[in-house]
Design a protein around this nucleic acid. Structure first.
Lengths: 126, 126
DNA sequence: TTGCAAACAATAATGATTACTATTATTTAT
DNA sequence: ATAAATAATAGTAATCATTATTGTTTGCAA
């Protein structure tokens, strides 16, 4: 049975208002403004729980630590290979690649994760 | 300037003959048969170097430690969500998704990484 | 309002990976 | 072929991200 906690609510609220997909460490440093004694373990535990509940999304980009996204609607991400930022990406539905993959695999395809990489506008101009 | 090393060659050979995308730890345990004194650091250092040289590929699936692939030809991977195995996947070219992504992003798309997930034949039958 | 499980803070432990250092191996120049 | 230069190694320590442990506090149902 899950009990409400002000710490978890604060973590969720924080993510709901961020669009840069912060790491656990960043969440920790910010939530500390409201809960000076919160521990990093509490942040990790709640990020895991919220991810399991489907209330946030975890991004494992392969570059640096995991990041978290308060926006659970279906969308993709792009990583700037220069500055390292992770941005949302509007793209039409590409679930047909699951079907393509299925025809070359003896088993069942359930889904995919895709990270695009490239250079953001800001880095291109430097 | 890069110097040849028998350890690095052994690591590369080992990967060239494996099709299950082993972790650094697995590479270490196997290469030890030929080099009993090789250190895990040497394995990691060479896996990084070979990846940078483009002679092997690193797979960061987000589940467990990084894995390595001696096959650098373009192909995709599927992770079985039950047994955790990582398998090669034959699929026609899907680079058009880069174009789709590009039209919704103010910047330059260079590529993408995609991991499919699902259930392998073996797990489906249990 | 009491009891109990869930969540907490503090901290230790773990797993994966990288860094350091003295020695060894490979290449280059004699 | 030999010696000098330096890249790579083995062994080990350190770091980073994350998870586990433990005693205390909090939320909530009886």
């Amino acid at each position: 049975m899950i009990k409400h906690s002000r710490q978890r609510e604060c973590i969720k609220d924080f993510l709901a208002n961020r669009y840069d997909h912060p790491t656990a460490e960043t969440v920790y440093l910010n939530v500390r403004k409201e809960f000076p004694n919160i521990s990093l373990g509490t942040v990790y535990r709640n990020l895991s729980l919220l991810t399991k509940l489907g209330e946030i999304r975890k991004l494992s980009t392969g570059i640096g630590p995991d990041r978290f996204d308060g926006n659970t609607s279906p969308h993709y991400h792009i990583l700037c290979t220069k500055c390292g930022s992770v941005m949302d990406l509007e793209i039409e539905n590409i679930d047909h690649i699951n079907t393509l993959a299925g025809s070359g695999f003896d088993g069942e395809i359930e889904g995919h994760v895709t990270y695009f990489y490239g250079k953001c506008r800001n880095c291109l101009e430097k």
